[in-house]
């Protein structure tokens, strides 16, 4: 029995090969984990800033927010457009397209395998964070953790779909990964990675809430940190974006494959 080309055996094979592949490059993944230090740099700035009052989060709340933002980012990083562009350019895509499995599943598996490999490093960084800053220690409850995990997973899904949309454009222009920059810039500034959205002026906040970006970092991070957040509307917004993006990706992909000329073949 196969659903969307997937059966338990296929899932197992995909995941175990990708996991073995990722384990080979664990040093690289450790470095990727480290390269996510930006929220910590911003935390030192915000906590040093005399006007922390304007931020509504203070002391340990602020630390928890940025640690959560770091963790959410760790488990929602997406790079499918880069892998895809390389595969398309080098002609590796051709055999994938022939298989009775949507090629995007392969990338999904590699991202999930990478997250599993990344887990110990992210965990280690969180431990070091608590050692340096013991006052901010907190243990989320089981339900909080479950909801945060779900929100992070949805965040990953939205990010993955957004990038897949751009990746599908590679069928038209082989340098489409340049378009990813246009996605990354608003992500960086509107997702809450650099400053909690609560610190934004209300006009900007209103604008940001119309984009998918706040649901990628700010919402899951607030759930994880146990800060006040509208859980229902957050999840509904996440699902809204997923249901908008999924058909768009599938349609664009279908149109693109027709144009595929098997480069490198």
């Amino acid at each position: 029995m196969r659903v969307a080309g997937l059966s338990p055996q296929v899932i197992k094979a995909l995941f175990s090969t990708q996991y073995a592949n990722m384990l080979e490059y664990r040093a690289e993944i450790a470095l990727w984990a480290l390269s996510g230090v930006l929220p910590f740099i911003m935390l030192t700035l915000w906590s040093q800033h005399d006007g922390g009052n304007s931020l509504a989060y203070q002391g340990s709340d602020l630390s928890r927010y940025f640690l959560s933002a770091f963790l959410v980012r760790q488990f929602s990083v997406v790079w499918v457009v880069f892998s895809f562009e390389e595969d398309a350019l080098f002609g590796r895509l051709s055999p994938y397209i022939l298989q009775p499995l949507h090629p995007l599943w392969r990338y999904v598996a590699s991202h999930l395998a990478e997250q599993v490999t990344r887990f110990p490093f992210a965990f280690g960084i969180a431990l070091i964070f608590f050692l340096l800053n013991p006052a901010s220690f907190w243990l989320p409850s089981f339900w909080q953790l479950l909801l945060a995990w779900l929100a992070t997973f949805f965040s990953f899904t939205i990010g993955f779909l957004l990038q897949s949309l751009i990746a599908s454009l590679c069928f038209w222009n082989e340098r489409a990964s340049a378009l990813e920059r246009l996605l990354f810039v608003p992500y960086l500034f509107l997702s809450g990675l650099l400053a909690p959205l609560i610190a934004f002026p209300s006009d900007v906040l209103k604008f940001a809430n119309w984009t998918p970006f706040p649901y990628l970092i700010d919402f899951p991070a607030r759930v994880l940190a146990g800060l006040p957040v509208d859980i229902l509307s957050g999840f509904l917004s996440q699902l809204f974006w997923i249901f908008c993006l999924l058909p768009a990706v599938l349609i664009l992909w279908r149109l693109g494959v027709r144009r595929y000329t098997a480069m490198g073949a």
Binding site: L45, H49, G51, S54, R181, L182, V185, P186, F189, L194
Partner: peptide
């Protein structure tokens, strides 16, 4: 594309910087 991304990135950085200066505060 690069040009637009760069412009947007600069605007974003200046925006984040401005968050430190609300209510007449200074940055260090």
């Amino acid at each position: 594309i690069e040009f637009f991304a760069m412009l947007a990135s600069l605007i974003g950085s200046i925006f984040i910087l401005s968050l430190f200066f609300v209510e007449g505060q200074s940055l260090g």
